[in-house]
């Protein structure tokens, strides 16, 4: 039918492949029931407060500071994860060394390890009487129960995103361009900075954004290792839990909505980076 009418703008391009209605319908139904409906319930509940109500919650000093801790530390952690993630991805794709495959497998550990397990393990490692914590204490560094603990947990969960988004692109880099650059007299450092790095930037940014988004929302591994002090080491997801146990559903929903909004913006940013990258480099 669609073919015979041939409207200028079709909802979908014609295709001989069957199952469009079935699969798209099923997809939309699942998405609606599992994801969109409950999220709508959240936004509805929060909108009961009105925009000014949500603004009041967001600017409440304790909430504002929890959001600042979550976003600030997550930014730092994502930055660290990106730098070291890039390094690890580079080492894994460019060099051969004994145990490379095992190192490669280890990178995915945070994907597979439950966050609560990571939390108690990190807490017992970095506590003042823990293996690493005791060493740090000698230098006067307190890791567990401070924002540093939050940072460590966030680097842990963010690292694989940073590695795995960059790695495939390093594999695909055409080595001949590097050779050409070298032949034309560029130093290795120059080649890396001017030739190799620029096309990788979108992937690095994507990995950064993913690590950031996961860090902001992380709960399980952090509560064990953060001090949870208001204004110092209290993260936004914990504040949601606290608001809930105070029976302050409106406040909990408001913070959740703010975080949801920011997740959505982050995803959008990833989209834009990749669209830009497609235009700029012809691939993502």
């Amino acid at each position: 039918m669609a073919q015979s009418l041939r409207p200028r703008r079709r909802f979908r391009q014609p295709s001989v492949i069957p199952g469009f209605g079935l699969t798209l319908g099923y997809t939309l139904t699942c998405l609606g029931v599992i994801v969109l409906l409950p999220l709508a319930a959240l936004v509805t509940r929060a909108s009961g407060l009105g925009l000014s109500g949500i603004w009041d919650v967001a600017t409440d000093p304790r909430v504002a500071s929890a959001l600042r801790v979550s976003f600030g530390v997550s930014l730092l952690a994502a930055l660290t994860a990106s730098v070291f993630g890039f390094l690890i991805a580079w080492v894994l794709t460019r060099y051969t060394f004994p145990g490379r495959k095992i190192v490669d497998a280890v990178v995915d550990l945070p994907f597979a390890l439950p966050t609560a397990v990571a939390g108690i393990a990190l807490a017992s490692l970095y506590a003042p009487n823990g293996l690493v914590g005791a060493q740090l204490a000698k230098f006067g560094i307190e890791a567990a129960y401070t924002p540093v603990g939050i940072y460590i947990a966030m680097v842990f969960i963010g690292l694989p995103f940073a590695v795995r988004t960059v790695q495939p692109l390093i594999v695909e880099i055409d080595r001949e361009i590097e050779e050409a650059s070298a032949t034309l007299g560029a130093t290795r450092l120059h080649t890396l900075v001017r030739v190799v790095l620029p096309p990788l930037i979108p992937a690095v940014l994507t990995g950064f954004a993913l690590a950031f988004a996961r860090g902001v929302g992380e709960y399980g591994s952090i509560i064990f290792i953060a001090g949870n002090l208001p204004y110092v080491s209290e993260i936004a997801p914990l504040l949601i839990v606290i608001k809930l146990s105070e029976f302050d559903y409106g406040g909990a929903c408001a913070i959740a909505t703010i975080m949801l909004g920011i997740s959505f913006v982050t995803l959008l940013a990833i989209n834009l980076i990749q669209a830009w990258s497609r235009r700029r480099f012809g691939y993502v």
Partner: peptide, 13 residues
């Protein structure tokens, strides 16, 4: 959005 950069497992290449 590019799909392979988002994939979790690093299998995209």
């Amino acid at each position: 959005m590019s799909d392979d950069t988002f994939s979790q497992t690093g299998t995209s290449p």
